[in-house]
Each structure stands twice: as C-alpha cells, then as structure tokens.
C-alpha cells in the first residue's frame, strides 16, 4: 500500500507538471512594454515553485516508500541533521528564494505603478457599470467634460451623465463601447466606476486594476501589437459579471483616426 502511495504521488507530481512545462495552457502573449519583467518574474517563480513542489513530493513519496511496513526488529532512526538542519534549510533555501523574488518583484511592480504616465500619453477614460465598460475620449480640446451622475441615463445612451447642452468641454467628448488605442503610444487610462466595484483586466496587456467606487484611479500602458483583445471584469459585480466585457482594438495611427471619425459620427 505504501509503495503504491509513493508511486501515486510520483505520478501525480509529474502529470501535474507536464502542462506547465509544455505551456499547454499558458499566459496570453504579452503585447505591452512593461510586461517583460512580469513574465520573467513569473517564469522564475514557476521554476522555483515547481522545483520545490516536485522535490518535496518526491521526497515525501520516497520516505513513505522507504519507512513504512517496518520489520519487527527495526529501530527508529533520527534524521542526521535534526530539526536544526530543517530550520536552516527553510531559512536559507526559502528565505533566499523569497528574498530574491521579493526584490526582483519590486522592479516589475515599480515599472507599472511607480512611474508616472508620460506627458504626451493619450488620455482615455473608462467607466465601469453593471455590466459594461464605456470609454471616453476627450476630443480635440483635450479635456473631459464634467460628469453629472444624476444625468446618467442608459436609455438615452448618456452613459457618462454628460450635459452637452451646457458644458462646453463635453460637446466634443466621444463616448464608445469599444476601446481603441493607437499602437506604440502610451495610454493614460483614467478609471472610475459609477456603481459597484469592478476590475479592468487585459491579460495580453499585463494590466489588471480594480475600479473603486468613489475613487479615481489610473493606469498607463503602451500596446505594441496590432490586434483585438478582450477586456474583462474580474471583480464580482453582480449577476452579469461573467458577461461584463469590452474589446480593445490596438490600431495603427491611421486606422485609429478613421475609427475615431466613425465613432464621432455615431454620437
């Protein structure tokens, strides 16, 4: 029974590792400028965690194999290094491991959160609500009109509560259901929620950030590959959470201008 158990553990450990090694199901391809350190961090962590996982499962299986079903005369033995060796091992192996991960991780994190957006970053606003994202571009004047929450009316497609009759800034704002950005340009995404908590997640962009009602947050990123990607909500926001999505189109500059023209005509 013990040998069978040991073999089961070996098999499970190996089978578990195969899809990881083969990248059968793996992270989507990175299309951002800040994603490389994150991916590197992920690979390093995967290597270290994977080795820890396999090594400990193998040792566990081996010990179960070796030290079960004792013969009557057998005596118990003590691990040569004793507890001290274990504590040292934990501190040295895991301690250095986590220290390294922690220190390098700071770099990847700082890349995203501790650098301000460039001055010429394209401003885009995203509003989350049950259960759709809507995006706003400031138009030629470069400034967003004020939001009047009491004027939000989805029936009139006034998703943002803009008062285009009175606010000059709002007149040229372009509100869209799909997000388009020019490729290789930094985007400054200003995020706000009109109702409950939501999140903005584009795996390819290596961006995930919660919307916090009552707080304006922002992220910035540069997309480097033309294509159409899914934006999904990752913060449980109600019954339609699973279908709270939008598409992100990364376009060439010409296509982006054409898209903007088309959207403007739809307003």
């Amino acid at each position: 029974m013990a040998k069978f158990f040991a073999i089961t553990i070996f098999v499970i450990a190996i089978v578990s590792a195969i899809p990881i090694l083969r990248h059968t199901w793996w992270m989507a391809e990175d299309i951002s400028t800040h994603g490389a350190p994150i991916d590197e961090q992920m690979s390093e962590t995967m290597a270290e965690a994977g080795i820890s996982f396999l090594a400990s499962q193998f040792i566990l299986g081996y010990f179960i194999w070796k030290f079960s079903n004792p013969k009557p005369g057998d005596k118990i033995k003590t691990f040569p290094g004793g507890a001290k060796a274990m504590v040292w091992a934990a501190f040295l192996l895991v301690g250095t491991e986590v220290l390294a991960l922690g220190v390098f991780g700071v770099k990847a994190w700082a890349n995203v959160y501790f650098t301000p957006p460039a001055a010429n970053a394209v401003p885009v606003e995203v509003q989350a609500g049950q259960f759709a994202f809507y995006f706003r571009y400031p138009g030629p004047d470069g400034s967003f009109g004020p939001i009047h929450p009491d004027m939000i009316n989805e029936a009139n497609q006034n998703f943002y509560g803009l008062d285009t009759d009175h606010d000059a800034d709002s007149k040229d704002d372009v509100v869209t259901a799909e997000m388009a950005v020019p490729v290789n340009r930094e985007i400054h995404l200003i995020m706000h929620s009109k109702d409950v908590g939501h999140s903005f997640f584009v795996p390819e962009l290596r961006v995930q950030q919660d919307f916090v009602p009552g707080m304006d947050l922002s992220v910035h990123f540069t997309a480097t590959k033309i294509g159409r990607y899914e934006i999904v909500c990752t913060q449980l926001c109600g019954l339609g959470h699973y279908n709270m999505k939008a598409y992100l189109s990364v376009l060439s500059l010409e296509d982006f201008d054409a898209w903007m023209k088309k959207e403007k005509a739809m307003q």
């Binding site: 029936a155 869209t176 259901a177 939008a246 739809m266």
Partner: peptide, 25 residues
C-alpha cells in the same frame, strides 16, 4: 436616434451584423 454599439457581447453584435441598431425612443 443614436446608434447602438453591441460589440461587448459578440452574440448581439453578430445578430445585428447586417442591420445598424439604434435607439427606439
């Protein structure tokens, strides 16, 4: 009557691919 962009749900977008849905107020 403003047009409606249904791209968030590909099913809806596909169902309306040949028409251009708009508000019905």
């Amino acid at each position: 009557m403003r047009g409606i962009d249904m791209s968030k749900d590909p099913y809806c977008a596909k169902a309306n691919a040949s028409t251009s849905p708009h508000m019905e107020n």
